[in-house]
Every structure is written in structure tokens, then in C-alpha cells.
């Protein structure tokens, strides 16, 4: 599934990032690479952007950008 579809409070492991696109390349430079665990923390008041946690830091990105990341969801309440 796509990272943008992962609900707040759940987490997953990145399986693929389209690093040919500008957004995907940028995201992978920030550490969104296959094998990295990502937790969705929350959504901003108007539903977008979304706050995620990976590699011991928190990152905010828009859903549109989160959609380029493929993720393998873990059981809910997982931690990064």
C-alpha cells in the first residue's frame, strides 16, 4: 500500500520509492529507502500535511508526496 493511505498511529516498512521522480529522489535522500521503518504520527488540522517518524527524526510531508512511497504495513501501534 501507499504511505499516504497508512492511518495515523500505524507503521510499516518501506518496500519501494520511485526515485526517478523529483519527489521520490528527495524523499530517499531524506532516508525513505527500502527497509526503513516509518510510523505515521498525525495529520495536520486540515487533513494535510502528515507527520511521520523515521530514522529517529520527524518529517512532515504532503499526502501527494507520501503517495510515491510503497509500504508494507505492520500491526497497528508499532513504533519506529
Amino acid at each position: 500500500m501507499r504511505l499516504s493511505d497508512l492511518p495515523a498511529g500505524s507503521s510499516g516498512i518501506v518496500t519501494a520509492v520511485d526515485d526517478g521522480s523529483r519527489v521520490g529522489r528527495r524523499l530517499s535522500e531524506l532516508g525513505v529507502v527500502p527497509g526503513v521503518k516509518i510510523a505515521v504520527i498525525k495529520h495536520a488540522p486540515f487533513g494535510d500535511p502528515v507527520e511521520i517518524r523515521l530514522l529517529r527524526y520527524n518529517l512532515a510531508l504532503r499526502k501527494e508526496e507520501a503517495a510515491v512511497v510503497q509500504i508494507d504495513p505492520e500491526s497497528t501501534n508499532g513504533r519506529s
Binding site: 523529483r22 519527489v23 500535511p49 520527524n58 518529517l59 512532515a60 510531508l61 504532503r62 508526496e65
Partner: peptide, 9 residues
């Protein structure tokens, strides 16, 4: 522009 912003501690 992509909105990718770190939320630092």
C-alpha cells in the same frame, strides 16, 4: 514545490 519539512525536537 514539495513540502518536506523536518519537525526538529
Amino acid at each position: 514545490p514539495p513540502f518536506m519539512m523536518e519537525l526538529p525536537p
